[in-house]
Structures are given as structure tokens and as C-alpha cells.
Nucleic acid binder design. Structure first.
Lengths: 114, 114
DNA sequence: CCATCATATCCATATTTCGTGAATTATGGA
DNA sequence: TCCATAATTCACGAAATATGGATATGATGG
């Protein structure tokens, strides 16, 4: 993940409908959701959501797949991982001790996943 | 970290100067950098940088501290952690298996930190 | 084919964001 | 106190972005 891609990804996540959409798709995992289902769930007009989905697609955080008349969207875990790595790489590379507690927290310790 | 704070943070990171500034501060860790040093390092005018630093401050991703005439800026690891948790919480909570490889990758495995 | 459903695209408008020059505040030293 | 330095704040024009109505595309069933 380079700077430009990271900027695109952060920009994609910096708008309410898109951030909500992305989180929704993360929770649904492999099941994904159709554009219409997302629009209904978030109470957003169809064309507005479509434009926002297009931004998410371009950012690499979201994939889609046509299934007949429906287009199903999924969170792209590779894209998500790339973005997280980009944020952590300076940390991990240059100052590992700085990020140790951060990473421990993210990994949710021993069975106590917050 | 709630949705609004996350939006503010992503928005803060979605601009080149601010993203570069944040990464710079992550690499310098506890040493931090003064506003002037950042401006010089990134070749940005002082008032432009100041406006961008203010955005980063409000986002909670960055702290500052006056030292005489100089104001020194630091990456705020708590803020960074909060943001990462926000992204991962749906993942970790609802679909742990989905995020296991992601987290393993972030923790850089056994000594081979990419 | 034709009607219909699901989604995307086009276009105009309203809003937000960005970078800059000028002015301002805060600090420390002579 | 006066000056130089460090940084912020303000006002504003230019550029980017979000939204919504209308329309177009694409797929399915009859």
C-alpha cells in the first residue's frame, strides 16, 4: 500500500454513509449485502449510495460481484489489511516498542476480546 | 471511539500533508517534532501546516506541548489505537475467523516483521 | 420482445475543503 | 521595553465533494 492508495482509502472512510457501509460489510463478512439491502439498511437513496459504493470500490476496501439482477458487495479484507499495515509500518519498523502495547490490545489478549 | 470521532480521524488522514505529518510523528515517537521542523521536512508553508496540525489535533491522533518558543508535536498512540480498534471491532466481535489472518499479519509473526 | 426490477450514470446545485497572504499572539533575549 | 522568532488565526477565492432528480444500462420472467 503506497501513500496514494492510503489517501484514497482514508478519504473513502471519511464520509458517514461510506463508513457505515464498510462496517456493515465487515460484519456481514462472506455473506455480503446487495446494494439495495445496504441502501435500505442505511436509509440512503439508491443513486447516492451507488455513488458512494463506487468510491469504496475504487479505494480497494470493498469488492462486488454480480448475481443476476443483484450486485452484491463485500468488505475486501486484503484492502483493509493493507491499510492497517500502512498505518503500522513506521511504528513496527522504526519503533517496535512504541507499538507493542497497541498490537497486544488489538489482538485482544488471552480470550478477553473487548 | 464512536462513529463521529472515527469520521473525524479518517478525514484528518485523508489529506496528503496531514497523512505525511502523522507518519513522520509516528516514526519520531517520543521525540516528536516541532511545527517548524515538520514544515521544513515536508516543504509546506507554516500557516498551511499549522491549519493541518490543528485538524490532526482535533482528531485526537496528535498531541502537542509548548517548549519555550517551540511547539512540539507527537503522535497520540491512544488515538491511533482507538481508530484501529474501531475498524476491527466488528470484525473481532462478529467474525473472529475473518480477522485472524489479518491480525496475525499485523503482529508480524515470529521475528519476521515485514 | 416487453415490462419490470436492480443498479449505475449524467447533470446541476449546494456544501465543504484547501492553500494562501496578512495580521496576531506568545516567548525569550538584549 | 523593544525586537526577533515561532506559531496561530482570519478572510477569501478556487477546487473538490455530496446530493438528488432524471435517465440509462443490464438482467430476468412472461
Amino acid at each position: 500500500m503506497d501513500m496514494t492508495s492510503a489517501l484514497t482509502a482514508f478519504s473513502a472512510l471519511s464520509q458517514q454513509t461510506r463508513l457505515e457501509t464498510f462496517r456493515l460489510l465487515v460484519t456481514t463478512g462472506d455473506a455480503g449485502m446487495s446494494a439495495g439491502e445496504i441502501a435500505e439498511a442505511l436509509d440512503v437513496r439508491q443513486n447516492t449510495l451507488s455513488a458512494n459504493l463506487s468510491v469504496l470500490l475504487q479505494s480497494g476496501l470493498v469488492r462486488n460481484q454480480r448475481e443476476g439482477r443483484v450486485i452484491r458487495y463485500f468488505a475486501d479484507t486484503d484492502g483493509m489489511r493493507g491499510l492497517l499495515e500502512f498505518l503500522l509500518e513506521d511504528c513496527c519498523g522504526g519503533q517496535p516498542e512504541l507499538c507493542q502495547p497497541l498490537i497486544e490490545d488489538l489482538t485482544c489478549g488471552e480470550g478477553t476480546c473487548a
